[in-house]
């Protein structure tokens, strides 16, 4: 079993962070993923066994479902169809202007001008061949 904090791991990400990364990857995917597929999608050079460990830990916590695929398993997140949590979070976000003092959101609202400007910025950057798509 590999240690997630070993020096070969470039990001030296903690276990909790790896769990988040794996969980995010599975939620973003179109269907269930095998450990190898998850590994390929995660940035950095994670060991296969590390990914496997994280997947089975998340499965044990009841956050993933899995089914046999080939010699291993394919994993998918447990859906929250009733979406109770989503509704609660939405109401928290709509708590008036006070929420700004507690919640740090990833992005703030864009004005129409901002939107245009943003398109230009990103397009100009990609046109120079420096975008994430052009680079790798």
């Amino acid at each position: 079993m590999s240690d997630p904090n070993n020096p070969e791991n470039p990001g030296r990400r903690a276990r909790g962070e790896l769990e988040s990364d794996v969980l995010a990857t599975l939620w973003a995917a179109d269907g269930p993923l095998t450990a190898r597929q998850v590994m390929e999608r995660l940035p950095g050079d994670l060991a296969y066994t590390t990914v496997l460990t994280i997947l089975s830990r998340l499965y044990d916590k009841g956050m993933l479902v899995r089914h046999r695929e080939g010699r291993g398993f394919a994993y998918a997140p447990v859906r929250d169809e009733a979406s109770h949590t989503a509704r609660r979070m939405r109401s928290l976000l709509e708590e008036g202007s006070d929420r700004e003092a507690v919640l740090t959101r990833f992005v703030s609202e864009l004005s129409a001008q901002d939107e245009q400007l943003l398109h230009q910025l990103l397009a100009a950057h990609e046109a120079r061949g420096e975008g994430p798509d052009g680079k790798r």
Partner: peptide
């Protein structure tokens, strides 16, 4: 309120994913 909601989030992982198509992150 935020702390209560935080404690009420399912699971004990650092990341809590909302099963919702509206893009939100905080």
């Amino acid at each position: 309120r935020a702390r209560r909601e935080c404690a009420a989030l399912p699971g004990d992982t650092e990341l809590a994913v909302l099963d919702d198509d509206t893009p939100v992150a905080f």
